[in-house]
Simulated scan of single mutants.
Amino acid sequence: MSALTEPQQRILDQLVAAQGNWVPGRTLAKTGAIPFEWLSNHMKVIRTHRPDLLIYGQSGRGYRAEHTTAAAVTPVKERPRGLEPTHVTFAKTRAVLDLLPAGAASMVKEVALESGEPVQDVLHRLISYGIEVHNDLVRHGENPLALRRVS
């Protein structure tokens, strides 16, 4: 792998000097003395050469870099074994939520978003919690809803 070119090194130096703050793309292009239209190609090369940096780009804000460990970065084209493609995960989630009434599905989605868990895990947790609460109420005599005892 060849080293970074001088313009790419100047761009990288400015990103690192910004210490995680956003740097406008036009500023980076001026720093590297390259046309703005070429910046994304140069950023791709910089990302390849510096796997210890996570370089984010956002339209209207520019780019920023954060230090990370090289082991934490997985190449985009590789997927760990056993990991499903995103569209398959979404289809499974949708199928589970379609089984619930609209109001309950909305509440489950909200809990999943807040907890950062997959919908299936949230459902399992909520069902288990509900069963525990039901059994505690029925078995300990605190049964204000007149729940029936499970045989």
Rank of each mutant, 00 (worst) to 15 (best):
N135F: 15
A70S: 10
A33Q: 14
G57K: 01
S40Q: 13
I131D: 13
E37D: 10
H87F: 15
V138Y: 01
A17H: 03
F36L: 07
Y129K: 10
Y63S: 02
G103R: 06
Q14E: 15
R139N: 15
K44P: 03
A29Y: 02
L4K: 01
A102I: 07
L123I: 15
A3S: 08
V76S: 03
F36K: 04
T69Q: 09
P85A: 08
E66N: 09
T93I: 03
L147A: 12
A29E: 02
H67P: 04
M1D: 06
L100R: 05
S106V: 07
S128D: 13
L4R: 02
V122T: 00
L99I: 09
Y56G: 07
T89V: 15
Q14T: 14
V73H: 10
N135L: 15
L113A: 13
A104D: 08
V150P: 08
E117A: 10
E142N: 15
G20C: 04
R61G: 07
V138A: 03
L147P: 09
L145T: 04
R139T: 14
S128A: 11
H134S: 10
G82Y: 02
I131M: 12
T86I: 14
L145V: 03
Y63E: 01
T31W: 06
H124G: 11
A65I: 00
Q8F: 03
S2E: 13
Q14P: 02
W22S: 02
A146E: 14
N143H: 02
P7A: 01
I34Q: 02
R125V: 08
R61S: 12
A18L: 04
L99H: 11
F36Q: 09
Q8Y: 02
T68I: 05
D52W: 07
S115T: 15
D13C: 01
P101L: 06
G62V: 03
S106L: 11
Y129L: 14
P24H: 12
L100E: 02
A112N: 01
E6L: 13
V23C: 05
Y129I: 11
L123Y: 07
R125K: 10
N143G: 02
W38S: 15
A3I: 04
P35R: 09
G25E: 11
T93N: 08
F90M: 06
G116E: 01
H87V: 13
G103C: 03
P7K: 00
M107H: 06
L15N: 02
H87P: 06
A91C: 08
P118A: 09
Y129G: 13
V138R: 00
G116S: 06
M1F: 05
T27V: 09
S151F: 13
A146G: 07
I131W: 08
V23Y: 05
D52G: 07
P101H: 03
E6P: 06
E142S: 14
V150K: 12
K30H: 11
E132H: 05
P24L: 10
R79K: 08
Q58L: 13
T86V: 15
E66F: 11
V122Y: 00
R47N: 10
S151K: 15
H124F: 10
G32H: 01
L12S: 00
A29N: 04
W22H: 03
A102M: 06
Q58A: 08
T93R: 11
V122H: 00
L97N: 09
L39Q: 01
H140L: 07
A95S: 09
L39G: 00
S40D: 15
